[in-house]
């Protein structure tokens, strides 16, 4: 694993390895001293072409907990807003000696270009590109699901006891605006690689062309899906109204109708199996895709997802920035001596 660009690139072994490393990283975050010296002297660049609060802060926290130096580059207030090309930005980062680049971009595929165009030697981590992928979000969702549902007693969180396990046998329903959601795409591929059965529930207008080729089931009816699938976890997606032209944008008749047909309210929450957990990638539109009762219920793991995000990103940075391939410069001749 040289870069982390898409969850569809991850093998089962790689995905489980990231989740296992995440469990160990999460354990270190319960200590009094949370900082580890692991990436001391390495420089991680946060390159954000699109607004983001939690993902950027999460990556920044993760890098700092591993003692890496973090440089934040956001489109506003930098040369990026003066029209500098991605290539020139990449060359600048290379010249400054960036050891890893975390990129969020409004264009799908920008991280791939950055990783493969030869402008940069450093590993590239995709922090969300257009409507394509958001791998670390999917990994933190998978980690949260595994922690809650794969332990000895279902529903009791367990991080270390589930090390080595995938998600086989679990049924997961993802509801909402799949069309604009990189989180949904990333999750469908990752969760199915991990052996879970994924069902997408969405109005037909909010499903992308080609969705039938994805490794998942599709339904247009939330109530039917809940009754038939009996999901172990339900993930509500944010209705991305900023990506729809006017209010609703013609994707659905009215927000109220969307809420009635696709929103997770207390009634639908009650129809889920006893052990089922509720996820949401945030930020939530309370009252639109998720009601306050569902968001604040004890089965909601939405706040925990944010905490797990830091551990997942620590794991990804650790796995990409250590090891032989990360050396970059002069390799140590007798590097292995140790005891």
């Amino acid at each position: 694993m040289r870069h982390l660009l898409s969850t569809s690139d991850l093998s089962l072994e790689e995905a489980v390895r990231i989740l296992d490393t995440t469990a160990q990283m999460a354990a270190t975050q319960e200590r009094e001293v949370k900082k580890l010296p692991t990436l001391r002297g390495r420089t991680v660049v946060n390159l954000f072409f699109e607004d983001s609060t939690r993902t950027r802060i999460s990556f920044e926290t993760a890098a700092k907990r591993l003692s890496a130096d973090v440089i934040n580059f956001s489109a506003k207030g930098s040369s990026l807003s003066k029209g500098e090309s991605l290539k020139d930005t990449a060359l600048t980062l290379k010249a400054m000696g960036a050891d890893a680049v975390i990129i969020r971009h409004q264009a799908s595929g920008a991280p791939y270009t950055l990783a493969h165009a030869g402008w940069l030697d450093a590993p590239v981590i995709n922090a969300g590109d257009g409507t394509h992928q958001h791998p670390t979000q999917a990994l933190l969702d998978a980690y949260t699901i595994r922690r809650h549902l794969m332990g000895e007693t279902m529903g009791e969180p367990d991080s270390i006891g589930v090390v080595g396990k995938d998600l086989s046998g679990l049924k997961i329903v993802i509801v909402g605006d799949v069309l604009h959601s990189r989180v949904a795409r990333a999750n469908v591929y990752l969760l199915s690689t991990l052996g879970a059965q994924v069902t997408l529930v969405s109005p037909p207008t909010l499903l992308p062309v080609g969705v039938e080729t994805w490794p998942c089931q599709i339904s247009y009816h939330l109530d039917e899906a809940i009754d038939q699938v009996q999901p172990d976890a339900i993930m509500m997606l944010r209705v991305q109204r900023e990506r729809m032209s006017s209010a609703g944008g013609g994707f659905f008749p009215s927000p109220l109708e969307y809420t009635r047909i696709y929103g997770l309210d207390a009634k639908r929450l009650g129809r889920l199996p006893e052990h089922a957990i509720v996820l949401h990638p945030g930020p939530m539109n309370r009252g639109l895709e998720i009601s306050a009762q569902a968001a604040d219920s004890p089965r909601s793991v939405i706040v925990e997802q944010v905490a797990n995000g830091v551990a997942v990103r620590m794991a990804v940075l650790y796995l990409l920035l250590t090891g032989e391939s990360s050396a970059g410069t002069a390799a140590h001749p007798t590097g292995k001596e140790n005891s």
Binding site: L36, P37, E324, A327, G335, K336
Partner: peptide, 21 residues
């Protein structure tokens, strides 16, 4: 006590698996 993340040779050899403390 897992010492992986405190090693001074993490840039060499394969990526090391972090174990439990």
């Amino acid at each position: 006590l897992d010492i992986t993340m405190y090693r001074d040779d993490l840039h060499h050899g394969p990526v090391r698996t972090v174990k439990s403390t």
